[in-house]
Design a binder for these strands. Structure first.
Length: 471
DNA sequence: ATAGGGTTAG
């Protein structure tokens, strides 16, 4: 009788967990909490699985601190956290790029007598790759391979993805082929990682070969595979092929998700086809996709490029009402939008606001402001901003050099171009041309010639440095 | 329970 009751209770805890899990997955935290409270009232107690579910969800939806609170709560309820509780927390910290926090949790786990497993190590490795420390990630990988745990399929996937993301796509490929020779059977995820790696370095043909390999392996490429290649095609301005792939996706019955729509809309905006972009937006809204911050950013950019600032502001309100948070993209897009609309003061104000909100000073936003100031003829103000910038890049210089030339200030432009080259940066070809032609036809052909040879030497130097991996 | 695709500037 007693055992039977215990069984029923276990069964209902299981039911509770199924319920909580699905609510957590839908980010309905309050609802999940209510279900748990109702369960307790009926005598169904949550167990470690219930709390692990909550930890993961709180980490995802609110943040690592919220997840950590659940760990305390389960302690108070008399339930000991297990390896999954800690792995979820470590993953939560990693997702938010807080590698130091991941390491702290890792130590805490060991101190509490919970031994890390291969999942913990996989997550740490991912964290190091994510924070741009491929050397440390490599060491973790080595420790997994040579250590007491056997690597999982995810170990290799994370390794290959990390290599691709950190500029070692070739090495990822070598690893992939070696693993295959040793009987490693790639999953679709593995292929998608490689396709993305190849696309990022512009190796479209190789990516297409992998697509064929996917079919040959018996896997069916998914929307992720297609979206990745689509993005690459559009970036390479192969719009016809892109549209073909888009049609192929539609024919094969793939449904577009937010990622696919953003890829298409973003690409259309970039080539100035705002009308077509709007059509895709309407299509997206019809499918009832829940917009996240990236989708909002894409749409805000669309309105800005179309000169409809009021619509953009409306979306900003909507973001706030939904409880989403604007990110640095949102702000940068708005700053650019304001600049392009000629509202430099508004843009500068938004930049200050952005810094006030705790965003790091943002190179792209500054570049937008510099270019905006140039475009309204305030080049000296643009130079002031340029001088105040801690970091500059090829965009900064190209924009200034171009506009100085447009203003007939070829010597200043030449000076700036030289400091750009001295910093080891490239500069837009058209900007170079503007300076050289300007100098030559305003009576300084010798200077033009000298500058030209400097440009050539800088290019040779850069190629040489790249070939030797000094950069 | 970790891993894969989308958004910004010249």
């Amino acid at each position: 009788m007693k055992r039977k009751r215990r069984m029923v209770r276990r069964l209902s805890t299981r039911l509770l967990n199924v319920c909580v899990a699905s609510l957590c997955k839908a980010h309905k935290l309050e609802k999940a909490e209510t279900v748990i409270i109702d369960g307790i009232r009926l005598g169904v107690l949550p167990d470690v699985v219930t709390y692990n579910c909550l930890i993961d969800a709180y980490c995802r939806v609110i943040g690592i601190d919220a997840g950590y609170c659940i760990l305390h709560r389960m302690g108070e309820a008399g339930i000991t956290p297990d390896i999954i509780s800690y792995n979820s927390l470590i993953a939560g910290a990693t997702r938010k790029c807080q590698i130091a926090r991941s390491l702290d949790l890792f130590d805490e786990m060991i101190q509490r007598g919970i031994a890390p497993d291969v999942w913990s190590y996989n997550t740490l490795m991912h964290g190091f790759f994510k924070s741009g420390k491929p050397d440390v990630a490599n060491r973790v990988f080595r420790d997994i391979i040579l250590g007491e745990h056997s690597p999982s399929a995810a170990t290799f996937n994370i390794m290959m993805n990390g290599l691709c993301k950190n500029g070692y796509t070739k090495n990822a490929f070598m690893l992939f082929r070696d693993l295959q020779r040793h009987g490693f059977v790639p999953e679709l995820v593995t292929y998608n990682i490689l396709v993305n790696g190849l696309c990022k370095i512009g190796r479209l043909e190789s990516a297409r070969r992998i697509l064929k390999e996917i079919w040959a392996s018996g896997h069916v490429p998914n929307a992720i595979t297609y979206t990745t290649i689509l993005k690459c095609l559009l970036r390479k301005k192969k719009f016809e092929e892109g549209l073909e792939l888009l049609l192929e996706m539609k024919c094969k019955g793939y449904t577009f998700d937010g990622f696919a729509y953003c890829t298409v809309i973003g690409a259309l905006i970039k080539i100035g086809k705002v009308k077509e972009a709007t059509e895709y937006r309407e299509d997206m809204m019809r499918t009832g996709i829940e917009l996240d911050i990236v989708s909002y950013n894409t749409l805000i950019n669309m309105y800005c490029k179309d000169g409809k600032l009021e619509e953009a502001y409306k979306l900003l309100d909507e973001i706030e009402k939904k409880g989403l948070e604007c990110d640095k993209y949102t702000h940068t897009i708005m700053i650019d939008g304001l600049c392009k609309a000629g509202n430099i003061d508004g843009a500068a104000q938004h930049l200050r606001y952005m810094n006030m909100m705790g965003f790091d000073s943002n190179l792209v936003a500054f570049n937008c402001l510099v270019d905006g100031l140039c475009k309204v003829g305030q080049i000296d103000d643009a130079m002031k901003v340029y001088k105040s910038m801690e970091v500059r890049d090829s965009f900064t210089y190209s924009s200034l050099v171009h506009n100085l030339c447009r203003d007939g200030r070829y010597h200043s432009a030449a000076k700036l171009l030289l400091s750009c080259l001295r910093s080891g940066m490239k500069i837009l070809k058209s900007a170079q041309r503007a300076v050289l032609l300007g100098l030559r036809y305003s009576g300084f052909p010798r200077e033009a010639k000298k500058l030209k040879s400097k440009i050539r030497i800088a290019r040779i130097l850069r190629l040489w440095l790249c070939a030797n991996n000094i950069y």
